[in-house]
């Protein structure tokens, strides 16, 4: 069981690394926000597997719900594409 949980955690951690890399290198900021939300979902699963249900309950509304909302409003009010 311990090996199974850690295997899941390792897979999700690798997924979060890929999502982080794609979010940072993406030119279109709206797509970057979606990759960032994917990374947040991966972290939420890691928190759950690390036996922290309190953190999961606060992290899902904040990082999957409110962060993307704030960034989408920010992108709508300023510019969508990153230059250079």
């Amino acid at each position: 069981m311990e090996v199974l949980v850690l295997t899941l955690m390792a897979i999700v951690a690798l997924l979060s690394t890929v999502a982080t890399y794609l979010a940072i290198t993406e030119r279109d900021l709206l797509t970057a926000v979606i990759y960032s939300a994917l990374q947040s979902t991966a972290y939420a699963i890691i928190f759950y597997l690390l036996m922290a249900p309190d953190i999961v309950l606060v992290y899902i509304p904040v990082a999957v719900g409110l962060y993307p909302a704030v960034f989408i409003v920010l992108i709508k009010k300023s510019e969508r594409y990153e230059g250079g």
Binding site: I24, L29, S36, E82
Partner: peptide
């Protein structure tokens, strides 16, 4: 990265 919005996204990832 040059964009301030991209810097802010990177900051959320760093703090998480």
């Amino acid at each position: 990265r040059p964009s301030l919005i991209k810097k802010l996204i990177a900051l959320t990832i760093l703090s998480d």
